[in-house]
Design a protein around this nucleic acid. Structure first.
Lengths: 260, 260
DNA sequence: GCTTATTTGTTATTATTTTAACATCCATGC
DNA sequence: GCATGGATGTTAAAATAATAACAAATAAGC
């Protein structure tokens, strides 16, 4: 077994058991305790693990994998991470005191939820587990949730009652994400149930704010739910092309560009 | 500082730092290392933490924890823990393949949710965050959720849409908890919104199963939602008095007693 | 094939933690 | 006020882990 394999196995064991000891790892890997120790210091240098006298755990920073990530769409290797995070942070800064928000599902809106301000009061209606996990823990945020049947690939809940709740609600701002947008074919998503929900959100919201990273421009998916011109604002990242920027501004949409 | 406060602070510190040591905790809590040690063994007995030589971490099982306990009603010092856990486990064993469940809010039902079987398919409708966190992670469980406005003391969601959803649903079994029950004054809870929800659940469920630890017998709270005789089964712990047992059996209620 | 460098193992020493026994403090009831 | 039981603190001995120095094994270069 190579050294690299050993390091990987150590991390795997820690993932599973949360913690371990040098003798335990030495037994498991069938090497001496000194070898384990030396492996561990190299993992410590990389900030992958933390050593307490007598035991090893995953580094608190990288450990976000245990539960949080269960309720998250943001995987380690997911695409356009930096862009999405920047977009989320910029969008969060648009929240004003006493706003009534609707926050759509998706990984970009999850970043928004993570960055939500904690110094002013507002309400937030959502329907996906990843957004919910963030809003419930904020004291200054009144959390509303539209339930339904759970879909475990999108972490979203959906059903007639959820639509009713959204239709009855009035949002001052809705943060909506999409899988594709095109000047010609409009703004599109992947599933019929997402479409239904987004349609209801568009109807109930005063200002409609689209959150998309620049890779979505020109992309068309199967489910249409709005025209680009239906949105009041758009938040994206700085890789946006000049043509696209001209088109968006030409439609009178307020454009926010997050520098990455 | 009381012992209970100390236990809670230890758990809080572990939540935040993932791990700690006896000297560290002793310094933080300003008590001797022996006191910390004795606190820790009691937490180990409750399976709340795990001790490795030289360090302490949250127990892997309850570590679903880092985030989870944020969504939990089960605090370190909460009362009748063992009884509730035993009741939850026994109630979970009543779940049969293809059951359509409604799971009420509360700490007893949280224990039920934690023990839910993973070897058979069923649906579970809930409306509280602690139950939700458990059902969403089970592949074999179809999760339904009745949304609404979030109440952060009970971790429960409530509103007209939630009631609609419950009323439209048909459960083969409902697991309901209560804050008090009395042969004379019926089964009671604390808040009007809990009452509304529980009433709806009673209406929509074929078999109504009450989960209460024995300390609730003879207790009357402000909000009535059912008579004892409205329930088909009752799960409680072995400290139940003989008189109460006779009354319950006399009503034709199937009684399950969890040995602690 | 030999030498050299790198990795791994062994051992003894040092430091830390655990355990246990006993002392002290504090609250409670008589 | 005094006695009693529970919780907390102190101390020393035993167990376990960390460190360091060196030996052995393996891999790499010539």
């Amino acid at each position: 077994m190579t050294r690299t394999e050993r390091l990987a196995r150590i991390l795997a064991i820690l993932e599973e058991h949360k913690a371990s000891t040098v003798p335990e790892l030495a037994g498991e890997l069938d090497v001496s305790h000194m070898t384990v120790r030396r492996d561990l210091v190299s993992l410590v240098d990389d900030e992958r693990v933390k050593i307490l006298h007598g035991s090893v755990i995953l580094h608190p920073k990288s450990d976000s994998r245990s539960v949080d990530s269960y309720y998250s769409l943001i995987a380690a290797g997911s695409l356009h991470r930096k862009q999405k995070r920047a977009i989320g942070a910029l969008a969060a800064s648009l929240v004003e005191p006493d706003d009534a928000l609707i926050i759509d599902s998706g990984s970009t809106t999850e970043y928004l939820a993570k960055e939500l301000p904690s110094d002013r009061p507002y309400s937030a209606l959502s329907y996906s587990l990843n957004v919910l996990s963030e809003t419930v823990r904020r004291k200054n945020c009144r959390t509303l949730f539209a339930g339904g049947v759970f879909h475990d690939n999108t972490l979203m809940f959906e059903g007639p009652e959820a639509l009713d709740m959204i239709r009855r609600y009035r949002a001052s701002k809705a943060f909506i994400s999409s899988a594709g947008l095109s000047a010609q074919f409009g703004v599109t998503c992947m599933n019929p149930y997402e479409r239904e929900t987004k349609l209801a959100v568009m109807q109930s919201s005063l200002r409609k704010i689209l959150l998309v990273d620049s890779s979505k421009f020109g992309v068309v998916r199967s489910e249409w739910f709005a025209n680009l011109s239906d949105f009041d604002e758009l938040v994206t990242d700085s890789s946006l092309g000049d043509d696209d920027e001209t088109i968006i501004r030409g439609m009178g949409i307020r454009l926010h560009i997050a520098r990455v």
